[in-house]
Simulated scan of single mutants.
Amino acid sequence: MMKIIEGAVFLGAVMLYLAPSIIADAREREDAFAVTMVNILLGWTVIGWFAALVWARHPISDRRMKHFAKRAQRAVTRVTIDAIVARAESRASSIPMFNPRLVPIVARIAANSNRREKL
């Protein structure tokens, strides 16, 4: 009988600990996984548990989420473009045509070949 009571108390404690996650899931929040992660990782601190609870119960506006999504998308785009440009710049020095010191030489060779084709 004692094991049943201990099991019920343990189950109750786990359900109380995960209450913010259960509330976020019941309210069908899009960020329920994030609430759950905060609850699991920081819930052992009383502040983390209350923060997850407030977050789970806080109403979410579509306008704020759309604005956040656009900012995140722009940030990802900016980082991706910067990475592509950096990679292109690092490769440009190894390609003779894009090497700034060799551009005049390549231009002269191209100009000479154009003159020969016209003749």
Rank of each mutant, 00 (worst) to 15 (best):
K70A: 10
A69G: 00
L119G: 06
K3W: 12
N112I: 12
S90Y: 07
A83W: 09
P104Y: 07
L119T: 03
V106A: 15
L16N: 01
V106L: 07
I95R: 01
V38N: 09
T36M: 12
L11T: 08
A75I: 04
M2S: 07
K70Q: 06
V103P: 00
A26N: 13
A111G: 05
V9W: 06
I40N: 02
N114R: 14
H58N: 04
V54C: 02
I22Q: 06
K118M: 01
V46K: 07
W44Y: 07
L42T: 13
I81C: 00
R115L: 08
K3G: 07
S113H: 07
G48H: 04
F10W: 08
T80S: 11
V38F: 01
R116D: 03
A52T: 06
D31L: 00
M15P: 00
G12E: 07
I109W: 03
L16R: 00
I81V: 15
S113Q: 09
F33M: 15
T45N: 14
R115Y: 05
P20K: 04
T80M: 11
L41T: 06
V85H: 03
A75S: 14
A19P: 02
V35R: 05
A26D: 05
S61W: 03
R29D: 05
A51H: 09
I105N: 03
R63H: 11
R115G: 00
T77Y: 00
R115F: 03
A92Y: 03
V106R: 10
S113N: 08
L18I: 02
M15Y: 07
M2F: 06
V14G: 03
A72G: 04
F68I: 15
L18F: 11
A86I: 11
V14C: 12
N39Q: 04
A107V: 12
I22M: 15
P96K: 03
G48C: 02
V76F: 06
P20M: 06
A111Y: 05
K118R: 10
A56C: 02
W44A: 13
P96W: 09
I105T: 11
G12A: 15
H58C: 04
F10Y: 09
M97H: 04
H58E: 10
L42W: 12
I84T: 14
V54Y: 05
A83G: 15
L18C: 09
T77I: 01
A83P: 02
R116K: 08
F50L: 14
T36E: 02
E30K: 13
I4P: 00
V14E: 04
A8L: 10
P59I: 06
A107C: 05
L11Y: 03
A110D: 15
R101H: 09
V38L: 12
I47C: 04
R63T: 14
R115A: 11
I105E: 08
V38E: 11
S21G: 12
A19H: 04
V9K: 03
W44K: 05
V38A: 07
R78G: 09
W49D: 05
R74A: 04
V106M: 14
M65Q: 14
G12L: 13
I81N: 00
A24N: 10
W44P: 08
I60S: 11
A51V: 15
R57D: 01
A52E: 05
A72S: 07
R116A: 09
A52L: 08
I4A: 13
